[in-house]
Structure formats: C-alpha cells, structure tokens
Design a protein around this nucleic acid. Sequence first.
DNA 1: CAGCATCCTATTGGATACTG
DNA 2: CAGTATCCAATAGGATGCTG
Lengths: 121, 121
Amino acid sequence: MTRDVFHKDCPARDVLGRLTGRWSLLVLTALMTEPRRYTELRTTVAGISDKSLAATLRSLQQDGLVHREIGTAQPPPVTYSVTELGRGATEALAPALAWLRANSAQIAGRSADDGTDHGAF
Amino acid sequence: MTRDVFHKDCPARDVLGRLTGRWSLLVLTALMTEPRRYTELRTTVAGISDKSLAATLRSLQQDGLVHREIGTAQPPPVTYSVTELGRGATEALAPALAWLRANSAQIAGRSADDGTDHGAF
DNA sequence: CAGCATCCTATTGGATACTG
DNA sequence: CAGTATCCAATAGGATGCTG
C-alpha cells in the first residue's frame, strides 16, 4: 500500500501529468459521442486556442488515446476519434466530470459569493 | 448538449483547473483512508516539495474538500482530513486513478520502449 | 481547412534557507 | 513540526500571423 502512484518514479505520474492538462478531459469527452473534425472540436471546446488544441491532440495521440485520420478530399479533412484505450480512459474519467457538473457551482461560490446565480455556468 | 463544462464561462472550468493540478488527486487519495499530519503527507506523496504540498492543501481547503485541524500540544500538530465534499470528489476520481494504475505502464512504454520492465513503477 | 511558427506573459514547481 | 520566503527554471498557454 501507499506504493505505485505514490512512488516517485511510477510512470503513472507522467501519464497523470498529461491527462491532467487543462484540456485533455474536455477534448476526450467531446470525442466520445462521435468523431470530430479539427474545427468542430475548436468550436465544441469553447475557449481553446489553436496551439493548445493541436498540442492536446498530439499528446493524446502519442499516448494512444486518440486516433487521427486524414481524408482524401481537397483540402484534406482531418478527423479525430477515441481509440479503445481512449474510450476506457474517458469512461474512467466520466464520474469525475459528472461530479464536477454537480458540485462546481457550489464550490465556485465559496470564496466569492456575490449572489449571482450562474446556474450550471 | 455540448453546454455546461464546454461553455467558456462555466465555473466547472475553474474547479477543473484546481483539481487537475499535478498533486491534488494524489493528496486527496492519500487522505481518503485516514487523516494525516503534514509531514506524513509529504512522505506518502513521494516527491512533492513543501511549497507544492502547502499550496495544494490550501487550494483544496479553500474549495472545501479538505479540513485542517490544529492540535493543542507543543508544537501544535496539524492534521488534514477530507470533508464530505472532498470524499465525494475523491470517490468520483477513484475510477480514473484505477485506470491509471492499470494502463499507465502500457502507455509509458509507447514512445520510448527500452525493454526495461518497471512493473507498476 | 488544419494547422505551424513566433512571441510573449503567467503560472507551476523545485531547491534552498529560514522561522516560531 | 509545519510551514513561509526567496530565487530561479521550465512549462503552459494565449495572441497573432502565416501556409499548403
């Protein structure tokens, strides 16, 4: 006990580092329902920059969580989808996301409760 | 659909940002089984610095996920524990951690497979 | 359309030393 | 024991402009 991930040299630390990037969870979840094109993703994950989206996708792709496919049309459409591994990861992350949805409003209004009701936002 | 967390101004974004910090998941999980003292935590979460541990604890405490209690002995012992809210959060994160434990070795050996067998590390 | 290159700033986080 | 203070390096990430 208190081993593996708590150990300094556990490779899970690296993976954790990449998965806890600001955008990974959002991008993975956005890809869960259906494959998406680059521009589509940038719209869905509102607020992400080109640089961050590209970096996140590359990172997820290198970890084998996301698949990148280039079409033959002109200009070539690029479609991203989750791999089997990525699907497992996203499903493992789903409870965390659900918890966020349910509790973040309460947490956000903890140190700065200005009385404004954002609802889910 | 494609709302709430995908919206730019959703407060879940902030909470996500703090929860996806490099150490939050580890610290929360370390506190799940039993309350722990500061030094104990620093030992359990191997590799964390004083600065990062203190910052992580302050952040979690402000979000209401962790409780800080100061004893009366000399020098005053400080004990950290998860709150009810924190317990819910950690449980929601547990599947992600389990997935990490099960799959990170495979992922880590993806781009740099040197043949070394780290096992779970 | 799907990025990459460049520049820039802000934040993270480790090391070290110090304190009540 | 339980931190804080300071310094510094590395990284993340946004803005902008450009490309095949």
